[in-house]
């Protein structure tokens, strides 16, 4: 049965299905229960599942995320909402020193099956403190997994896998995508972490992206085809760590040209990692240097007019693509 639901509803379905499936799964976060979620992702869940499974936390990220890490060591599976990923920094110690390392430092005696989820994006004119995209920071930490879904279909399948995973998985969503409608099948399905998805196939150029940059790339690919007769392939990473290198390399070997696109800043970003990997493993397949498009390298600007410029637009991707084609 084909139907369309939005990205936020897809995540909500994943949460509800996992709450019903496993009594150890519960949701905790600020305004997730009685207020129905700051971005309404958890709407209706408290009414349906009650206080035990959907818990409103005070504004205390280090406290409740650290609590979730501790509870997970005894077998619970907390799904913790950050109202914005930008607020992760006040819980950084718990998310890195504890979540990412307790398994290692105990020589494998423990594990930490938590999910931390919430929106991580700029582009909504809320200034630098609310616009961080820290997938590269957390992806840098062995022990953590990082997922950035671009579509409702991926968001649901990846979220269910993240909740069932026995390691800490940090899911970075996007408020600008919450309302986007996509085909999502009825019923249960999961998507493995570490498997990229070719969202559009093409023969002349590879665009590698994650999160909303995938949508930007799909628009850019249309323009490239319509106006320049360039057929771009769009590889959606979906998962940052684990990373599907094979799908990237397969595409590069087919097209011989790559632009890596991200909404994050360029320095030490995910694009830097992928660029280094491509030049090392597919150097002979390249017909041009690997190019990158990232956000303009400054804190996120408030000014609505300029923030649009600061983040990669389809035209920026087209321009960069033309420079190597």
């Amino acid at each position: 049965m084909s139907r369309q639901i939005d990205y936020r509803t897809a995540i909500r379905e994943a949460l509800a299905e996992e709450i019903e499936r496993d009594p150890n799964v519960f949701i905790i976060g600020e305004e997730v229960a009685q207020y129905n979620g700051a971005y309404k992702v958890t709407q209706g869940l408290w009414a349906k599942y009650g206080d035990k499974r959907v818990i409103d936390a005070p504004i205390s990220e280090a406290g409740f995320i650290g609590m979730g890490v501790g509870a997970s060591m005894l077998g619970l599976r907390p799904v913790m909402e950050l109202m914005f990923w930008s607020f992760a920094y006040v819980a950084f110690d718990q998310m890195i020193n504890n979540a990412a390392t307790v398994r290692y430092m105990s020589g494998g005696l423990l594990h930490c099956p938590i999910v931390v989820r919430g929106p991580a994006n700029g582009g909504t004119n809320v200034g630098a403190t609310h616009s961080h995209t820290p997938e590269n920071l957390f992806g840098n930490m062995p022990g953590l997994k990082v997922v950035c879904p671009a579509t409702a279909y991926d968001a649901k399948g990846l979220m269910k896998t993240a909740i069932r995973d026995n390691d800490p998985v940090y899911v970075m969503e996007n408020t600008k995508l919450y309302g986007e409608l996509w085909d999502v099948p009825e019923g249960e399905y999961t998507i493995p972490l570490g498997v990229a998805d070719v969202k559009r196939s093409g023969s002349d150029l590879t665009l590698v992206a994650h999160g909303r940059a995938v949508i930007t790339c799909l628009k850019a690919a249309e323009l490239l085809e319509a106006e320049h007769d360039i057929k771009a392939e769009v590889v959606d990473l979906r998962s940052i760590r684990p990373l599907d290198e094979q799908t990237i390399l397969d595409s590069v070997r087919k097209t011989h040209r790559v632009v890596v696109v991200e909404e994050n800043k360029p320095f030490c970003g995910v694009g830097a990692q992928i660029t280094a990997m491509i030049q090392e493993k597919a150097f002979d397949d390249l017909d041009a240097p690997v190019a990158r498009v990232s956000a303009i390298d400054a804190p996120a600007i408030y000014s609505p007019r300029l923030e649009e410029v600061q983040l990669p637009r389809p035209m920026d991707v087209v321009t960069k693509a033309l420079s190597i084609c």
């Binding site: 406290g63 409740f64 609590m67 979730g68 619970l76």
Partner: peptide, 15 residues
């Protein structure tokens, strides 16, 4: 850093 973890262990017992 262990103080929220201790809280979580006790939370899990109650849960």
């Amino acid at each position: 850093g262990q103080t929220p973890l201790g809280l979580g262990i006790a939370f899990a017992l109650k849960y």
